[in-house]
Design a binder for these strands. Sequence first.
DNA 1: AATAAAAGTAACCTGAAGTTAACTTTTATA
DNA 2: TATAAAAGTTAACTTCAGGTTACTTTTATT
Lengths: 194, 194
Amino acid sequence: MKTNKDEILNAALSVFSEKGYEGALLRDISAALKITKSALYKHYEGKEALWNSMIDYVEQYYSEHIGCVCDIPIPNSWNEFQMLSLKQIDFTLHDETVRRVRRLLMTEQFRSERMSDLATKHFITDIEALYTKIFVGMTEKGILKCSEPELLAFEYTAPITVMIHLCDREPDKETQIMNKIKAHIKRFSQEHKN
Amino acid sequence: MKTNKDEILNAALSVFSEKGYEGALLRDISAALKITKSALYKHYEGKEALWNSMIDYVEQYYSEHIGCVCDIPIPNSWNEFQMLSLKQIDFTLHDETVRRVRRLLMTEQFRSERMSDLATKHFITDIEALYTKIFVGMTEKGILKCSEPELLAFEYTAPITVMIHLCDREPDKETQIMNKIKAHIKRFSQEHKN
DNA sequence: AATAAAAGTAACCTGAAGTTAACTTTTATA
DNA sequence: TATAAAAGTTAACTTCAGGTTACTTTTATT
């Protein structure tokens, strides 16, 4: 039975995110695919090559599911803004692949330069850019008055990011964490609405 | 030459934080101490035991150098507040042991329950508790008016935390990062001063 | 200074993980 | 359908890290 390339990369992502690069065994990955570890060598030259291909895969998934939100609609009200934010948070928190990627970024950011770059992009740059764009748009629509949209985006998104990382560590506290996020969003909205 | 216990734990912290638990070799640790790996077994039963002792050491260091700031003086002005914050950030960013601990918390948080607990405590709970206390104190002194000091502490500290993590990844960008932190502190101060 | 405990060394053992080779089965296409 | 390429299997190999043992050196104490 021909093993699909995406299946392999998915299994690799699963195991690497669970155990880290050093802790992940080719045996674990092949077992998840119900093939022997030798069979993996028919597809990839070795562990390192598989790792690199997995990063390519991750980057592609990311750009298709998160990067593409650049053409997101600018909210027309603060209520729409809140809905939009919560929807994104919900996706980020529950999409299995995104969760695995985040875990990987956390644990491997210091051992792989590509991971380090991706971490900064994923955790900071892209989200801030997105919300900067949203805040500029909302300002143009007269919903928001702000002179420094970048700073605002930074201060809005960072607390949410911290809570998402917390939720990755302690998923059973999701309800409390979401309440904290909602309190932040509410407070932020009330402060800037007008 | 008798090897001191603190020397061993320091070397362990150095190597574990650099390579992670799986990637760290007893050989590396013993080499850093200029002894053979066999000699390590005179002090610790094995890798796992050394790891656990290192966490004890880390917890102790943390409570002595960061936990103890519970009896920090409440600032009497917004200028004092800014000075205090910047001083803490400077310490956190440059103390070698604290940096290593942070790296360890990042990379091992999903593989060790003690690390996970420490990460939440270190990155969130303790800092928020500290600033909640500061904001309550400042409110009592009439410098600040706030009804939800916990929420305020969360929103104040989270952006700083995110920037510290960024600085760990990309130390050469420290200047820009510090500017961003300062902009945040300034904006925060101006918004709440009164 | 004698001597026992603590600290260190070198050599070896063991198991495990990445990798390779030889061979078989499946898949696809001329 | 013949046949070659792709995918898979088993088993061996290589390397290397954690751990053990037997022995030596250092340190400290009476």
